[in-house]
Amino acid sequence: MTLWRKYTSIVLWGGLVAASFWVLLLLQHRVEAIQEERAAQSELLYVPDWRVLHGLALGDDATAADLLWIRSVFYISAQRFHDAYHEYLGVPHHHHGHHHEKVHHHNHKLDHKDIHRTDSKRPVEQIPDSVDFLELDFRKHPLLQGSLYWNIGSEDGRYLYRMLDIVTRLDPHFITPYVQGAMNLALMAGRYEEALDLLEKGTVEQPDRWEMPYYRGFIRLFFQNNKVGAVEDIQDAALKPDAPIIVVQLAAALQIGIGRRDLAVRYLRTIYEITEDEKLKTKIRDMLRVYGGGPKAGTTARKPQVGKMLDSLLVEQ
C-alpha cells in the first residue's frame, strides 16, 4: 500500500514536471514565432560602445574582443543562413543579388592619407585603367562561396563595421577581424571604404604584417578596379618581413600586368637586396630571368600563369 502510494506520487510529480517543461517548450516556440526574424537578428547587432565593453572586460580586453568577434562571425553566418533560407523557400529577397554586378568605379576620388605610403621615392604614375589581364573567376574559391551570392545590404553592413571596429579597438593585435572582417564587409555589404579603413587601421597598429596591405590590394583590385592602388598595396605587402613568396610574385606579376615591367624588375631587385631568405632569392633570380628578357608579348603569354598564381594564393589563405 505504502509502496503503491510512493510510486503514484513519483509518477504524478514526474508527470507534472514533464508537462510543465513541455508547456515551457511550446511557449518558447510561440515567443520565437512572434518575434520578427529581423528583430531576432538585430539582437545580434546590439553592441554597446567600445568604452563600455572595455569597462566590462576589466582589463581583459582581448578576451572581450574574442567574444565580440565570435559574435560577428555568428552575425555573418546568420545573415548567410537567413538569405539562403529565403532562397530555399523561393521567397524573393530584397538583398539578393550577385555582387560583381554592383562593382563601382568610384575609387579615384578617394583620399588615402596612408601613413606608411608617404614614401616619396616611390614612382607614382598614371597608368591606364584598361588592363584586364586576369582571367580568374574568384567566385569559385571556397572562402568566397556563399558570401558572394548572399549579401546583407549596405545598412546591416554598417553594424558589422561597428562591431569590427570595436573588436579591433579592444584588441588591436588581433589580425583575423581586420582581414576576415574587411573581406566580409566588401563581399557581403559592398562597403569597400569601411573595409579599406579597417585594413588601414590594422596596418597602423601592426605595421609589420603583410595581410592588411595585401587584402587592401585585393579589395581595390577586384571591387574597385583600382589597379594602381592595388599594385602599391600588394607591393607593400610583399615588403613586409613575413610576406609569403607568393605575394612577392603577385606584386611583380601585377606590375607586369599593368605594363610596368621596369617597375617589376626594379622592385624584384630591391626585394632581392633586402631579403635574407635564400629560397626567395632563388625564386627572384628565376623571375628576373623571365621578366628581364622578352618584349611586351611576354606579358600576354603569361596571362594564364598569373591567374593560376592568384588562385593558388587564395587557396593559401
Binding site: D66, W69, I70, V73
Partner: peptide, 19 residues
C-alpha cells in the same frame, strides 16, 4: 568557441583560457 572563429582559433583559446 575558438573553433567558431574564422581565423586564429589558437589565439582565441589562449585568450579565453588565460582569462
Amino acid at each position: 568557441v575558438s573553433n567558431w572563429s574564422i581565423g586564429e582559433p589558437d589565439k582565441i583559446i589562449t585568450d579565453l583560457g588565460l582569462t
